[in-house]
């Protein structure tokens, strides 16, 4: 009997502690400085990435901001259907311009490849095409676009060459249709050099020919992602 009483006493003594400490809820308020809450809007904590070597140590995760706040005007879905009107197609911010030779630039050879997010090869003017990188081109909506946005179809400038302004990004991008990673060139302007003779290279990033595939896409057994199949 005594034993049971002790158990019940322990149970009721510990229960509130658990309920408060291990179950942060939306209505909780931050209790100390070691539970940081971001002060900018919207007030919800951003998760942290692991620091190198700290994978096994639990990271401190801030509790969610709790106070109710005035909410700015809501962008609601139309009541009738989940469709928004598309923004008016923006005008191209920078059409083909003349890029003087003395201006630092790259040279690009467009290669249209069906079912691929690759744009073509890009190299420095003094490099050979063997040194060129197969890239996807990152645009800046309403500012800088790939040349073929001005054309009817994306393949219309196949094997055109361009002088290009811009830079290589420090990250790669994933092509979900081909299940491969591509280098990224961030475009900031171009000058068309017109149609040129073919580049004697197979299209695609080096990994297409050398890396072990994930197994989700192989050219050999023709298991392919459905185009636009997301």
């Amino acid at each position: 009997m005594m034993l049971r009483m002790i158990c019940f006493a322990l149970f009721f003594a510990l229960l509130p502690l658990n309920a408060v400490d291990s179950l942060p809820r939306i209505s909780d308020t931050p209790k100390s400085e070691d539970q940081p809450v971001l002060t900018h809007d919207p007030a919800c904590p951003v998760l942290k990435a692991s620091e190198p070597g700290s994978e096994t140590k639990p990271m401190e995760i801030p509790v969610v901001q709790t106070e109710k706040k005035e909410v700015l005007p809501e962008v609601a879905a139309p009541a009738s259907a989940k469709v928004e009107s598309d923004p008016v197609t923006p005008k191209v911010g920078l059409e083909s311009v003349v890029i003087p030779e003395e201006t630092p630039h790259f040279v690009g050879a467009r290669y249209y490849e069906k079912k691929s997010g690759g744009w073509g090869w890009i190299k420095k003017p003094e490099e050979s095409w063997k040194q060129a990188r197969w890239v996807a081109v990152q645009e800046s909506p309403r500012k800088f676009h790939v040349p073929h946005r001005q054309l009817k179809n994306a393949e219309q400038d196949h094997e055109f060459q361009y002088k290009l302004l811009g830079s290589f990004a420090d990250y790669q991008i994933y092509d979900p249709v081909r299940d491969e990673l591509l280098d990224v060139f961030v475009i900031a302007g171009y000058e068309s050099l017109g149609a040129q003779k073919s580049i004697e290279r197979k299209p695609g990033p080096p990994g297409r020919f050398t890396s072990k595939k994930s197994g989700a896409y192989t050219r050999r057994n023709s298991v392919q992602f459905e185009e636009d199949g997301f």
Partner: peptide, 30 residues
């Protein structure tokens, strides 16, 4: 973002933003 925050508050769930794959993986792990 504010719209989403409002939805989370309405549902009474803890909302966390993530910006990168690393942040997500860190949350799942730790």
């Amino acid at each position: 973002l504010t719209n989403i925050l409002k939805r989370a508050n309405q549902e009474g769930v803890a909302l966390f933003w993530f910006d990168t794959q690393d942040q997500l993986i860190n949350y799942l792990n730790n």
